[in-house]
Amino acid sequence: MAGVIWGLILLFSAGKKVLIVYGHQSSGSFNAAAKSAAVEVLTTQGCTVEVSDLYAMNFKATCTAEDITGEVKDAEHFKYAEETKLAWEEQKLSADIKEEHRKLTEADLVIFQFPMYWFSFPSIMKGWIDRVLTLGFAYSSEKRYSQGVFKDKKAILSFTTGSHESMFSANGINGDMNVTLWPIQNGILYYCGFQVLAPQIFWAPSYVTAEARGAMLEAWRTRLQGLLEEKAVSFAPSDYFDGEKGFQLKPEVQEEHADKEFGLTVGTHLGKALPPNNQMKAGV
C-alpha cells in the first residue's frame, strides 16, 4: 500500500514547478537545512525546483525609481505602485524583478523559507514582496483575494521562531500565532490569490536539542511528500462582500453566521470568538 501511495504522489508531482524564496544569511542555519530538505524531497518527486537565495543574490530590498529602466512618468511626485505597473506593462522593469516574475509565473507552488523577525519577514524578503508582487502583475482592484491573479498557485510559509510555541498561544505573551499570520497570509498571499497552505512552523530551534531539531526536519520531509496535494486554509471568498457598500459582508452572509459560535476568519470575525487555528490548519 505504501508503494502505491508513493507512486501516486510521484505521478501527481511530476512536472510541477516549485519556487523557494529563501531568506537566511548562513548556509549552516536551520533555515538552510529546511530549504535543502525541500529541494531534495521535491526534486526526488519529479518537481523542478528553483531557489531565490536572497542574501546570496544580494537582492535589493528598497523600492526606488531604479526599479524602472528609462524615465518615469512623474519624477517629482513619484508613486512606486503606479510607476512600476506602467513599467511592467511596457517591459521596463529592472532585470532582477523580471527574473523573479519569470520564476513566479512558472511556479505551481511557492515556499517562503525564513526566520521570523519582529513577527514578520526579514527585511530582505519583505523587499522581495514589495518589489516582485508588482501592481498589475500580481494583483489589481479587479483581481485579488479569491479572484486573484495567482488563484491557481499554492504558497506556504515555512519559518523558524525565536520563541517557544507556548508563547505564541492565545494565552501566551506573544499572542495567538493565528493573529500574527493574518496580515501575511491574508494581506499578501491570499490578496494575490494564492491558495495558502497551513504554515510549517519550526518552534524555537535554537533552544531545543539536536535530536529535537532532527525530528523537526524529519516531520518537514514527511509533509513535503504530500505538500502539493494539501488543501488550503480558509478565507472568506470575495463574493461574500458587497463592493458597492464598502466591501462589507453581505447581509445574507451575516445572517447565515449570526448564530454560529465563531467568526468567519481571524480578520473577518463578526465580533465573535476567533475560529480556532484558522490560519494554522487546512480549511474543512
Rank of each mutant, 00 (worst) to 15 (best):
E261C: 00
L270R: 02
V266C: 07
L249G: 02
V233A: 10
A34S: 13
Q225I: 04
L11W: 15
G263S: 01
G70E: 13
S13R: 07
V266G: 03
E244N: 09
S94V: 07
V41I: 14
P115T: 14
M216F: 12
M280Q: 11
L135T: 03
S123T: 12
G7A: 13
Q45S: 11
F150L: 04
L264V: 02
L274F: 14
L8M: 11
G267F: 05
I5M: 15
L189S: 07
K272A: 02
F235R: 05
G70V: 10
L133Y: 07
K98E: 13
R144F: 02
F121E: 08
P251W: 03
H24Y: 03
L157Y: 14
N171C: 01
L264N: 00
G136H: 05
F121C: 07
T180K: 14
M1A: 15
I201M: 11
G243W: 11
G263T: 01
N278V: 03
E256R: 10
N178G: 15
A273Y: 00
D176E: 13
K151L: 00
E83R: 05
F202W: 08
A219V: 04
S141V: 06
G28R: 10
L11D: 15
S238R: 08
G127Q: 08
D242C: 07
L93N: 06
L19H: 04
A212L: 03
Q254N: 00
L217H: 03
P276I: 11
A87W: 14
A215P: 00
P122I: 08
G28F: 03
L227M: 14
T268F: 09
F159Y: 13
R102E: 13
S158I: 04
S120H: 13
Y139L: 01
G46N: 07
E165P: 12
E229I: 15
W203P: 13
T134W: 09
K272H: 03
E211D: 12
S141A: 13
Q113C: 14
A273T: 04
T84F: 10
L19A: 09
T134L: 10
W6P: 00
K154D: 03
K98Y: 01
K281Y: 14
G7M: 11
Q113Y: 12
R131F: 06
K103D: 02
K79L: 15
S120W: 11
Q279W: 08
K92D: 03
H164R: 10
D96Q: 04
H164V: 09
A32P: 02
D152E: 08
A155C: 10
V72R: 11
F121A: 09
V51I: 08
L11C: 09
Y240C: 05
W118G: 07
V41S: 06
T180I: 11
